[in-house]
Amino acid sequence: MNGRLLWWPGLLWLLLFFAIPVTIIALISLAHRAPDGVIRWGFTLENYLRLVEPLYWAGPFVNSLLLAVLTTGLCLVLGYPVAYSLARQPRAVKNLLLFLVILPFFTNFLVRIYAWFIVLRPEGWLSEALRALGVDLVFLGSPVGVLIGLVYGYLPFMILPLYASLERLDFSLVEAAHDLGATRWQSFWRVIFPLSRSGVIAGSVLVFIPVLGEFITPKLLGGGKVPMFGVLIEEKFLGRVPDWPLGAAMALALMGLVSLVLIRSFRYIKESRWVG
């Protein structure tokens, strides 16, 4: 087979529209900000230095990390029992329930956020009901609303790898643990959980990474009042006071962070057989 012919079109495309753009980000992150907010070419590290300025960065950095960690944790706590219950169902039921988990995830992201917008708005019945119970929670424009949106958007990414690892688990091991006198909790904590480790790690990474770069959910459900990496990056490029070089440095920093997480967890993601 003439291999060259198969390679070139795709490779050329990826080089031109992926490798070169990413390189341009790197170059621009080293340039100066021109008065109009765009670029004056040059070589400077000032954009990166501004990234580590504590006052500037502390807010969105802490916000993003905290929200990403919270989202991942909540997805794990909510998703694990679901994945576990699913894995123990008979085949037909299993497939149907799994399908129902994935279904919302195939619908348009913005539509889903919009749906939450209806549910969470201050005059909505959810807020009314909570107010009647004496809880006055503001969802929209607050981190709580953003968190709900994020968990909703990324829960399937957690459940699927968890399910994949739990489904392969030999449940006679659990029976053996019971047989040896373990309680349910003990058999879970000492047998099931360790054996599903690769699924836990893969799921966590698959939730954590995209949430770090999120921009729509905080923008639409947070009303611009919950600054995250993604929101900041967008502002630097398409906001009222653009600063391309700083935005490029942020994007690259985000990519670096993500690569670090990915490299550390690649083995588990592969093991969970969920990617690739």
């Binding site: 490779l11 341009i24 980000i25 995209p210 770069g213 993604g230 490029a248 994007a251 985000l254 990915l262």
Partner: peptide
């Protein structure tokens, strides 16, 4: 290179294309 577009955050790729 062929796998990267899947794993990097979408916003980074979007920024790259914009630039």
């Amino acid at each position: 290179l062929a796998y990267l577009p899947i794993v990097i955050p979408e916003i980074v790729m979007a920024v790259g294309l914009l630039l």
